[in-house]
């Protein structure tokens, strides 16, 4: 794949466009400026998309579940809303409803966060998106879940941590807004995995040694040789399947994957900070949401966490927050430092 002579529209992350717009040749600057302008207009349209009324009472969730009816249209038809206590009988609808509720409850009870934006934003999800659609995503406003193809993947609402993972992308967007590329993007993915796992552990009342530390357990059908999408405890061990390939996640900086695929390896290198969180939680014992979770949450909200932060910058901030909360040299501070060192991220 060499000598690209004509490129119609490559994906270029906005942060890179901003760099080009402020530097580079006149032609490049002009192209980048036009792209950014079109992008912002598009984002403004997206942001203006109508969201149903949220919650004005802190601590009270407001959920809206839609069905796309196997079409690729958003949001689709409203099929369950807050207060509809009777189960619909449709597994995807009910799992989405309860999964959003469990995720809201975790963020509220452990971090006093009132929904995605901390202002009571409505939690909106669409299920039955597309035909045989084997993915879930956050579209910048709402969560979207496919039914899976039934051959490799089950429906994506089957795993609570996946629902929480997608909702956490919304939280990140409203806080650090980490650029979705390279190490910042891998931090974005890792934070979504961390809180996805925390929501699941909190719901199940698990201590750290009882948790499976898997992301997306139950998503694969029995035809797939794999346990889940990712393993936080042992990155790279989640699956090894003839069709899907082998789990590419590293768990240490010496195995960091330099690639332009996957937005610069956002779902690949996230294994490194994932494992750091797991190491910290296991070293402290008890419930991961008592110390490790709040440390990561405080760092996500830390104004010093820039949009393009790398692993080291994030790690240093977790250590600083541990020092502020528990004291430098404390058990918690030492465990945080050691967790990052264990995965090869240099901290002081």
């Amino acid at each position: 794949m060499t000598d690209i002579q004509h490129v119609s529209r490559p994906f270029v992350p906005p942060y890179l466009l901003e760099r080009i717009a402020s530097g580079g040749s006149q032609r490049l600057r002009e192209c980048a400026r036009h792209t950014l302008l079109a992008d912002r207009q598009f984002r403004a349209r997206e942001g203006a998309a109508h969201l149903p009324q949220g919650s004005s009472a802190r601590g009270q969730v407001v959920r809206y579940i839609y069905s796309a009816g196997q079409r690729q249209e958003l949001p689709g038809r409203l099929v369950r809303r807050e207060g509809d206590e009777a189960e619909s009988g449709d597994a995807a609808i009910d799992e989405a409803y309860h999964g959003l509720g469990a995720t809201y409850r975790y963020f509220w009870e452990k971090h006093q966060r009132h929904s995605i934006d901390d202002r009571g934003m409505a939690l909106q999800a669409t299920v039955h998106f597309g035909r045989d659609y084997e993915n879930a995503f956050w579209d910048g406003t709402q969560m979207v879940f496919g039914d899976g193809d039934g051959e490799l993947f089950n429906r994506f609402t089957i795993a609570l941590d996946i629902i929480a993972h997608e909702l956490t992308h919304g939280v990140i967007q409203h806080e650090a807004d980490l650029v979705y590329a390279h190490q910042a993007g891998a931090l974005n993915e890792s934070l979504s995995d961390v809180f996805g796992s925390l929501v699941k552990q909190y719901r199940l009342g698990q201590r750290v040694e009882e948790a499976d530390w898997l992301i997306g357990a139950g998503l694969f059908t029995e035809r797939v040789a794999g346990r889940a999408l990712r393993s936080m405890a042992d990155p790279g061990s989640a699956y090894d399947d003839p069709l899907l390939g082998r789990d590419p996640q590293p768990g240490h900086m010496r195995d960091f994957v330099e690639t332009e695929d996957d937005n610069g390896g956002v779902h690949i290198n996230s294994g490194i900070p994932n494992r750091a969180f797991h190491r910290l939680a296991m070293a402290l014992g008890g419930h991961a949401w008592d110390v490790a979770g709040p440390l990561w949450y405080a760092t996500l909200l830390d104004e010093r966490l820039g949009r393009e932060s790398d692993f080291t910058a994030f790690a240093e901030l977790t250590l600083d927050n541990a020092g502020q909360r528990y004291g430098q040299g404390s058990r918690e501070w030492t465990a945080t430092r050691d967790a990052w060192r264990d995965v090869g991220v240099a901290v002081r």
């Binding site: 002579q5 004509h6 906005p14 992008d39 984002r43 995503f137 956050w138 974005n188």
Partner: peptide
Amino acid sequence: PMATDAVDRRRFHLAIEDAEGRCQWS
């Protein structure tokens, strides 16, 4: 324009290559 706030979405890369494997268009 693509939706830049979206994450975990999928995208496709299409390319035409010539006989020597050189990319002519993408």
